[in-house]
């Protein structure tokens, strides 16, 4: 295994709410190798987005990283000073959010927004930056003429590309993508995915890809981690997670997506509703919805165990 680019050890993130403290990310450990795409899948409230925010310490009150460490290139992100953190956020890591296309400033042209980012972090002139901005737009498949456009003059898909261009501007080694295509139509999503494949080949950055859409994940990720109620319950190479999942939740999740080809049969998905983080049961968080629930599941938390080389799952049954 290659030297890890990012290493997360026993990360815990809490939300302090009026009704108590909820643990949104519980004891999560994972690594991302250079050039690798790691997918994190799970439904809303499982902690996948919180994880993305926490890695760059962009989480806001009342969220709190209570335990753990985030090692990037040998440095702990959680111990960085404000200035180090600022540099880290742009030069090493950048983030693309689901609603990022709406985060562009509506009264400034996209060209200016791109050059601003470049000038703020690199010691080059505005002219050079403008050339670079045009180049970046070309990379994400937008014509250079669009530099003078305002965000509202572009479609949702184009705006999302602009955001990706901004994320690429400082050539980060890791891009965190939190549901980057969820708000887009399938055809536009496909265009952006195609763009992403090309860019990855060209620049070789790592991606932490967060999504609820497992089919999409199975396509783009090298490895997949599945989260449920704050816990990482299964992680391994994408093919195995998809074709031979070990954890009952992963199995159910994969069975929840009707396929476009293949046999047409009744699917059953997962019964019940996601657990409330403020009312977690003793033992496994998935016990109420699990068909294979045993006595031990109601008493002890299952721990992530190595099933195979680089393949882990957390279930008493395994």
């Amino acid at each position: 295994m290659k030297e890890a680019l990012l290493e997360i050890n026993n990360l815990c993130v809490d939300y302090v709410s009026a009704n108590g403290v909820a643990r949104a990310v519980n004891n999560v450990s994972l690594t991302i190798a250079p050039g690798e795409t790691l997918g994190i899948a799970g439904e809303s409230g499982c902690g996948k987005s919180t994880l993305a925010f926490a890695i760059t310490r962009l989480h806001k009150a009342p969220a709190l990283i209570s335990e753990g460490e985030i090692i990037y290139n040998g440095r702990d992100v959680l111990k960085m000073s404000d200035k180090e953190l600022r540099d880290f956020r742009w030069n090493d890591v950048s983030i693309v959010f689901q609603s990022a296309m709406n985060s562009l400033n509506p009264v400034i042209t996209i060209g200016e927004q791109l050059t601003d980012v470049i000038v703020a972090h690199k010691r080059i002139s505005f002219k050079q930056a403008a050339v670079k901005a045009k180049e970046l737009l070309g990379i994400v498949g937008i014509h250079g003429d669009r530099l003078k456009s305002f965000p509202h003059q572009l479609s949702g898909g184009m705006r999302q590309r602009v955001v990706i261009a901004i994320a690429l501007a400082l050539e980060p080694k890791l891009i965190i993508m939190d549901e980057p295509t969820t708000a887009l139509d399938v055809v536009v999503e496909r265009e952006i995915l195609n763009e992403l494949y090309d860019l990855k080949e060209k620049f070789g950055f790592s991606i932490l890809f967060i999504s609820h859409d497992l089919s999409l994940m199975g396509e783009i990720a090298d490895r997949i981690g599945v989260m449920y109620a704050g816990n990482l319950i299964e992680i391994g190479d994408a093919k195995t997670v998809f074709s031979k999942p070990s954890h009952p939740y992963t199995k159910g999740l994969i069975a929840s997506f009707p396929t476009i080809h293949g046999p047409k049969e009744r699917l059953y998905g997962i019964p019940g509703d996601p657990v409330n983080l403020l009312r977690l049961p003793t033992g496994c968080n998935f016990q109420d919805r699990c068909a294979d629930c045993m006595d031990i599941c109601k008493k002890e938390d299952p721990l992530l165990a190595e099933l195979n080389v680089d393949y882990h799952a957390a279930c008493h049954k395994l």
Binding site: V186, R190, L193, Y197, M217, E219, I220, K239, F242
Partner: peptide, 17 residues
């Protein structure tokens, strides 16, 4: 076009539209 764009697990790589 619509059908060729639908993501499908295990079909990694660029897909021409």
């Amino acid at each position: 076009l619509l059908l060729s764009a639908v993501p499908e697990a295990g079909q990694s790589g660029r897909r021409e539209l």
